[in-house]
Amino acid sequence: MRRSLLFIPANQPGMLQNADVFEADAVIFDLEDAVFASEKDAALELLNAFLDAIPLNKVEVMVRINGLDTDQGLIDLKHIVSEKIDTIMLPKANLDVLNSCSDILDELELNYQMLKRISIVPIIEDADACFHAYEIAKHPRVSGLLLGAEDLAKDLEVERTDASFEIFFARSQVIYAAKAHQKDAIDTPYVSTKNEEGLILDAKYAKSLGMNAKACIHPNQIDIINEIFSPSKADIEQALRIIKAMDDPNNKEKGAFSLDGKMIDKPIIERALKTIEKAKKYQLI
């Protein structure tokens, strides 16, 4: 269960050392697009040294490796997998790449005698991955899907716009695939880091479609994303009222009951319970 995931370039010591200062639910140490090809070795060494030196207990530790279609992707996996990380973010994901990544993780976890099982968040960033999102989300190691809209737009040969009509289908695919398997649907980052109003509109729209989290590329986006993807005060109050009404002896034996003139049945009760669970996790109650 995540709301905000912050990308941090793995080769910038100034950013690394603040990783757990920000209030993101997850940090994604980026070995891929944020690192020049000539500096991949330095980024990997720095990230490993950082993770060895600084325990990050409050935040989910994710690492975006380089694509497994490159030599560097395999080098990244072999050197970064340890008990200190929680999740591998897998770029250019498809079923073959996902299965390869999972097989390599099986081997590494065994070799390193790890107690932890590393999860995978595949990035859905081309048309083929969009169509296979359901099968990708089904994989037992997958804990969520991230939509990578910038690369997807490149693949589709379309312009990325603030209105985001061009990614409506992809967003829907990611959401339905993820939710069908009880995984996180993670929305693409909003790249205009100084446009707060644009971020709010974009994040609210993504949430209205069914996304439950959003990646971000600047710390100043975290608070907005956390607020939008947390249950609102009104949602929490209503959920508490539903749970209280459900416990009423007059309603307990019924499959459905009435509250404020509206029918409350199983799906609404389950949604209320989920809202309470989220509110507790994010310390809102």
Binding site: A42, E45, L46
Partner: peptide
């Protein structure tokens, strides 16, 4: 103003290079 782990990592990478 690098922290210890940064100095160590930069040195190791320079030596590997």
């Amino acid at each position: 103003g690098a922290l210890d782990y940064t100095i160590k990592a930069r040195l190791i990478t320079a030596l590997k290079r």
